[in-house]
Amino acid sequence: MAREIPQLNTGSMADISFLLLTFFLLTSSIDTDMGIIRKLPPPPDPNQENVDVKKRNVFNVLVNKYDGLLVQGRPMDITQLRVAAKEFLANPYDREDLPEKKVENIPGLGEVKVSKGVISLKNDRGTSYRMYVAVQNELTAAINELRDELSQQRFGRKFAQLTNEEQINAIQKAIPVAISEAEPENVGGGK
């Protein structure tokens, strides 16, 4: 009779895998990085002349070193910024003092009035990062809400829930992220 091979003792296998598990639990992090994604403009071209932008097409947002907010020359609370930015970008009643619109033919949407408005954001070197992100957040929120509205109206669902590449591109084209950051300058002094 052939001699039987003795069974391997697998009792400690669980212990070993437990050890590995705890090791991975300790050395890894689950936190998925979230944030506000932005695209920086290329460095300024010295040969390029300044492009004249009509005053009605610019939405000036200034943040000073005391985290105070100045919007279109008037002090404003951060809570009102979203509504103000939205009204500026949408210009629902085609007011004279709000930005012009250009009719563009976007595939998937047809003819759409695209706002020529640009939000100009300027901050001081002394502004706190918290305030800066808050302002960026409110401006992004304004754009996102406008996109949601348009998407809901045209495609019946929110912008974030769109899956069709063409539809996403169309909405992005109809409502671009028009936030421009001024070249830094030290207005308020300090670091």
Partner: peptide
């Protein structure tokens, strides 16, 4: 890191 509502995942 500061708080925000309009976050997107990387």
């Amino acid at each position: 890191v500061p708080q925000a509502t309009e976050v997107a995942k990387l």
